[in-house]
């Protein structure tokens, strides 16, 4: 059974993470620019954030920023921007916590493996329905 530690982290092994369905909670479009590193050839016109949760308690919470990316010669699309924000701390199979940065990198890979873009955009632009992804 998952429990939240006294330090506020929900500790999960990677393989446990893979078994938890995520439910879309909220997404929105930024009404102010998100500072970012300049990227050669990219022309960003839209950005926002998206939030996802697990259906069961204690609730896993993970959110990240996104942007609509259009670059010359590539197909336009929505991409995750930066590392996620979360209450999850990923631990090894031996239950040793990863560093915070490594944990966020693992979670970023997890995000990139799911189809979150449609739900985020639908919700951000007001046409969203509840979406749950079973990983």
């Amino acid at each position: 059974m998952r429990t939240v530690s006294s330090d506020g982290y929900l500790r999960l092994k990677t393989r446990e993470l893979d078994r938890i369905p995520l439910r879309h909670l909220i997404s929105n479009v930024d009404d102010e620019p998100v500072p970012q590193a300049p990227c050669c050839g990219a022309a960003t016109t839209l950005s926002g954030y998206t939030e996802w949760v697990s259906p069961d308690e204690p609730t896993l919470s993970i959110g990240w920023d996104w942007e609509w990316r259009t670059a010359p010669g590539t197909r336009a699309g929505v991409v995750r921007l930066g590392l996620p924000r979360t209450n999850i701390l990923v631990v090894s199979d031996a239950c040793v916590p990863l560093t915070w940065e490594d944990s966020l990198q693992v979670l970023a890979g997890f995000i990139d493996a799911i189809d979150w873009q449609r739900a985020a955009l639908d919700a951000a632009f007001g046409s969203g329905n509840d979406v749950t992804y079973k990983n």
């Binding site: 909220i26 959110g63 920023d65 590392l83 209450n87």
Partner: peptide, 30 residues
């Protein structure tokens, strides 16, 4: 050793952007 705070969601971005070590306790609520 730690602070806990009730905040609008946007503060999490600011904390990350400015290099403060912070994480959410649970999902945001409206």
């Amino acid at each position: 050793q730690r602070l806990i705070t009730v905040s609008p969601l946007g503060i999490e971005r600011l904390l990350r952007r400015e290099g403060f070590r912070a994480h959410r306790a649970a999902p945001p609520q409206i």
